[in-house]
Design a protein around this nucleic acid. Structure first.
Lengths: 121, 121
DNA sequence: GATGAATATTGACAGTCGTCGATATACTCG
DNA sequence: CGAGTATATCGACGACTGTCAATATTCATC
């Protein structure tokens, strides 16, 4: 017993509203994807990731600090967000901490985002 | 007169800091990319875009309103953000307003984001 | 163990974001 | 014109974010 008309069956200007439009993704899924995008939605984090991507396994915090226009606590803050998300890992060597990208985690994230972007294009 | 050693030339645990790490993108570029990601970093916008993607040129605001768990002013707010960014367009027909994706704008945005994601993987 | 360096954490602050009720605007129909 | 509907805008509010100074922690060296 269908009581709503599919949107595709309707002409422009004819019968509007409540015709059964639903998102294909549940809100919970959308929130996960939104969190992925959110991590990337900051220019300092993008610059940090860029430096990490081009210096595999060899970047200590003070190098990162020199690469971006914010102070050390702020760099530490952004690195923590990326680390908590599993996208970078850190290794302490002596008094320094070296950061590196977690390429596998990035592949997963990229696949998720590409899936979204593909449907919109 | 090079006075900084490239990061790649250094061993782990040896000489740290100020070795010339720079982001390849300027801050201004990073801010543009971050704004792109930011637009996508919201679950309601993702759901709206999903409905628009699957109902080409035929979705009025009240249909969108029915598809997401927020009130009408909030839907209107998110649609405005997407419209201001050029990613959707609206057309008034009678008392209704129909929204549709701007596929070309999405191709541009996807290319920019894919470029970033590719370097990280 | 005191000193100094590298990094993390804390606490405060200003600014931004998402949300909604109320209201305004624009259109339709009687 | 008056009533009703669809959408946009306004104004307020709480929550979250980015930033930094100050402080804590950890390690190395003397």
């Amino acid at each position: 017993m269908p009581r709503t008309l599919a949107i595709m069956d309707r002409k422009l200007g004819e019968r509007c509203c409540d015709l059964g439009a639903r998102p294909s993704r549940a809100l919970a899924d959308a929130e996960v994807i939104a969190a992925d995008f959110d991590l990337m939605a900051n220019p300092i984090r993008l610059q940090l990731l860029d430096v990490l991507a081009r210096n595999e396994g060899r970047v200590c915090v003070c190098d990162l600090e020199a690469a971006v226009p914010v102070k050390q606590p702020t760099v530490s803050h952004h690195l923590r967000l990326l680390r908590d998300a599993g996208l970078v890992a850190s290794e302490k060597v002596g008094q320094w901490v070296y950061y590196r990208l977690q390429r596998a985690a990035w592949r997963d994230l990229r696949a998720r985002l590409a899936g979204v972007l593909d449907t919109l294009t």
